[in-house]
Measured scan of single mutants.
Amino acid sequence: GSLMYASIFGNVSAIIQRLYSGTARYHTQMLRVREFIRFHQIPNPLRQRLEEYFQHAWSYTNGIDMNAVLKGFPECLQADICLHLNRSLLQHCKPFRGATKGCLRALAMKFKTTHAPPGDTLVHAGDLLTALYFISRGSIEILRGDVVVAILGKNDIFGEPLNLYARPGKSNGDVRALTYCDLHKIHRDDLLEVLDMYPEFSDHFWSSLEITFNLRDTNMIPGSPGSTELEGGFSRQRKRKLSFRRRTDKDTEQPGEVSALGPGRAGAGPSSRGRPGGPWGESPSSGPSSPESSEDEGPGRSSSPLRLVPFSSPRPPGEPPGGEPLMEDCEKSSDTCNPLSGAFSGVSNIFSFWGDSRGRQYQELPRCPAPTPSLLNIPLSSPGRRPRGDVESRLDALQRQLNRLETRLSADMATVLQLLQRQMTLVPPAYSAVTTPGPGPTSTSPLLPVSPLPTLTLDSLSQVSQFMACEELPPGAPELPQEGPTRRLSLPGQLGALTSQPLHRHGSDPGS
C-alpha cells in the first residue's frame, strides 16, 4: 500500500510541476520586462504597450523563439521550412505564380514574418522605404497627419515599386495596425538579389506586381527641396563636378596662354591676372594647382613670374625650331616645348642647366612650328573623362623618358669634360720664339709635331656638333674642335714665318 501511495504521489506532483513550468517561465520573463521598464524609466503609455505586446506574443508563440529554433537546422532544411511557412503567400499572390521551385525557395529564405499588435506603428512618415510588405492577416491604416487616407487588409501590398527607383524613397505617411496583424516583408536588397539570379522571372514579377498603396513621397523628385535634403551631399558634389568641367572646357578654348597655377587659371584673360583667384576666387580649394602655386600668395601677385606667355621676339635665322618633346602628345598638341628640351639645344645650356634650372624654367623657349593648343594648358582630366590607368601609364612613360634624357646628358657632359682635359694635357705650358741651342744640326726643328685630335665617332658628340652648327654659343662658352686643319689655341699665330727665318745662335768662333 505504501508503494502504491508513493507512486501516485510522485506522478501527481510531476504533472503539477509540468503544468506550472510554463507559468514560471512566463513570470520570469515578465519580471525581466518590468525590470527593464523600471531601469530605463519608460513612461506609462509606452510601458503599457510593452506589457501588452509581451503578453500577446507569449500567448501567440508560447514563449518560443522561432528564429532561434529555425537557425538550429541546416540551410537546406531551413529553405523547406521557410517554404512551408510562406506557402499561403507564395501560392495566392499573383506576382509569385509561375516561378520555379528554386526561385520560390530563394524568396522564402528572404521573407521575414512580423507580428504587430493593435496601435503599433510599422512605418513612420519620413522613414526610408527599405522593404516591401505583404499583409497575411489583420488590417492596417495609413495616416497623413491625423487623416486616415487608406485601410488595407489581407493580401494587400504596400511599399514602393523598387524597379522604378535606384534609391529608396521616404514614406509619405504613417502605417498603423488596427488589429493583430501578420506581415511578410522582404528587404529591398534581398528581393533585387533574387531577381538578379532569376532574370526570366524578374520581368514577370515586375509586370504582375500591383502595389495597393504606394508609400513613396511624390514630392521626392529631382530638383525638389525634399530631394535635395535626401541627396544633399551627392547633389552638391555633382554640381561641383559639372562646374569644374564647364570651366576646364572654357580653358581649352584659349591656347595662347600657358599658366603654371593649374587648370583653373589657364583660361583667365590678361585683365584677371591681378585678381586673387581668377574664376576660382569664390572657392580657392575647388581646383588643383601645381607646386608653384604656393608662391602666388606673396605680395606682387600681378607681377609674379609664374604666369607664362609666349615671347614675341624673333628667332635667329640659324636657330632650330626646338628640341624633341618629352611626351608623344607634344608633337601634336603643344605650341611651347618643355623646359628640359631647351637644355639640349647647345653645349652652353648643358654647362648651365643644373646651376640655374629654376631660373631657366621661365626663360624664352623655342617654339614648335605648329600653332596647336598648349601642352601645359590642357586641363586636368576628371576620373569620369580619362581612366586612372591611362594617366598612370603616361606618367610612367614620361618618367622613363626623363631617365633616358638624364643618362644621355650625363654621358655627353662626361665626354666633353674628358676631351677638354685631354686638350689641356697635350698642350705645353708655354712657348717662346727663341729656342735653346741643340747639340747638333738636327735641332733646327722649332717644335715637335703635334698629332691632331682623333675624329669623334660617338653619337652623342655628333649631336653636340649638330647643335653647335645651329645654335649661337654665348661669349663665355668653350669652343669644341671642328672639322678641318686643327691648330692649338695656345700656339702663336705666325708659326709659318718662324720656319722661314734663320735661327740666331749665340757662340764663340775658336779662330777669332
Rank of each mutant, 00 (worst) to 15 (best):
G126E: 03
I142P: 01
L143G: 07
D146K: 07
V147K: 11
V149I: 12
V149E: 03
I151F: 03
I157P: 02
E160D: 04
L162T: 12
L162W: 08
N163P: 06
G173L: 08
V175T: 03
Y180Q: 06
C181H: 01
D182C: 08
D182M: 15
I186M: 03
D189K: 04
L192M: 11
E193I: 04
M197D: 14
M197R: 09
Y198N: 04
Y198V: 02
S202L: 04
F205D: 01
F205C: 02
S208I: 03
I211K: 03
R216D: 03
T218R: 11
T218H: 12
N219A: 12
M220H: 11
G223Q: 09
E229T: 06
F234P: 10
Q237F: 14
R238A: 11
R246T: 11
R247Y: 12
D249F: 04
K250N: 13
E253H: 15
Q254N: 14
E257R: 08
A260H: 10
R265W: 10
G267T: 10
G281C: 01
S285C: 07
G287D: 08
S290P: 15
P291D: 09
E297I: 10
G298R: 13
R301I: 04
S302K: 13
L308D: 14
L308E: 13
P310R: 10
S312H: 06
S312N: 11
S312I: 13
R315C: 15
P316I: 08
E319H: 15
E319C: 10
P321A: 11
P321M: 15
P325D: 13
P325A: 11
E328M: 12
D329Q: 03
S333D: 10
N338D: 13
P339S: 11
N349D: 10
F353Q: 07
F353P: 08
E364W: 03
L365D: 05
A370S: 07
P379H: 04
P379R: 06
S381W: 05
S393F: 07
A397D: 12
L398P: 02
L402V: 07
L405Y: 04
E406N: 08
E406A: 06
T407D: 09
S410V: 09
A414F: 04
L417Q: 04
L420T: 06
Q421G: 10
R422P: 08
M424R: 08
V427E: 05
A430F: 09
G438K: 11
S443A: 13
S445G: 12
P452G: 10
P454C: 09
P454W: 06
L456P: 01
L456G: 10
T457F: 11
L461C: 15
V464N: 15
S465Q: 11
Q466L: 08
M468F: 10
E472D: 13
E472Q: 08
E472T: 13
E472H: 12
P474E: 09
P475V: 09
A477V: 11
P478H: 10
L480W: 04
P481E: 14
L491C: 14
L495E: 10
L495D: 08
G496T: 11
A497F: 08
T499W: 10
T499V: 13
Q501D: 14
P502H: 08
P502F: 11
L503F: 01
L503V: 10
L503G: 09
G507E: 11
S508G: 08
